[in-house]
């Protein structure tokens, strides 16, 4: 058959072969990845999810800058063991105000998506400064400098203004009030406020997926 000449042309021409290979590989990406770029912009905040309050926002940035995501995920996957341990699985609408999202996949420590309210503020304070005084086997580093590093209120206020430009619905009153709220706060205060707020948007309910123990 004369079709052989086409096959021969591809086989003997590395450039053409490479281009066609590239197109073949791109098909999958076009179908599976590209729609998600646009999908991401259509995700709405889940019910109860609000932009971070000033102190929480400062804490979120410390969470990122200290690299907490290196050991802690914030994503409860749709697996029985996970929802039984950590609570209802994570929804996309819960992380619309995270830039970048903190889902992660590395769990040297536990998942933190719903850590808010699980421990007291005093516990977090003690645990961040002296982890092994509470959990003897813990290999979490101590973050002692957080307690002695102050938050710069103007800096956080500026971040809120930028986030508003990016679409986070902060009101003027919230941005103006930020300076008062952040007065005399340390990085430790901020990080604890952030941790205590995690997961509250989608509160634990015994009847939602807690499972294994439905009454």
């Amino acid at each position: 058959m004369s079709n052989y000449k086409y096959i021969e042309a591809i086989e003997k021409n590395l450039g053409l072969f490479g281009m066609l290979l590239g197109i073949a590989l791109t098909l999958g990406g076009l179908a599976e990845i590209v729609p998600l770029f646009y999908q991401a912009h259509t995700v709405k905040a889940a019910e109860g999810v609000k932009p971070y309050a000033p102190l929480e926002l400062a804490g979120r940035d410390i969470y990122v800058s200290e690299g907490c995501y290196g050991c802690h995920s914030q994503q409860i996957r749709r697996l029985r063991a996970e929802v039984q341990r950590y609570g209802p699985f994570s929804r996309a609408g819960e992380s619309v105000y995270d830039r970048p999202f903190q889902w992660g996949s590395k769990r040297t420590g536990p998942d933190l998506s719903r850590i808010g309210g699980k421990y007291s503020d005093a516990w977090h304070r003690q645990h961040l400064l002296y982890p092994r005084s509470l959990v003897p086997d813990s290999n979490m580093p101590a973050y002692k400098w957080l307690d002695t590093t102050a938050i710069d209120p103007l800096d956080i206020q500026a971040r809120m203004k930028v986030l508003r430009i990016l679409g986070d619905p902060y009101s003027d009153a919230e941005i103006d009030g930020a300076l008062d709220v952040l007065q005399n706060k340390t990085e430790l205060d901020a990080l604890i406020a952030y941790l205590q707020g995690l997961g509250h948007a989608y509160p634990f309910k015994v009847e939602t997926l807690k499972g294994g123990s439905h009454e």
């Binding site: 309210g117 421990y119 516990w123 634990f204 309910k205 807690k210 123990s213 009454e215």
Partner: peptide, 16 residues
């Protein structure tokens, strides 16, 4: 001293 014991009824079922 203001020791805090968190509330667990939202997180744990009756049997838990």
């Amino acid at each position: 001293r203001q020791g805090v014991m968190p509330a667990w009824k939202e997180r744990l079922s009756e049997s838990e």
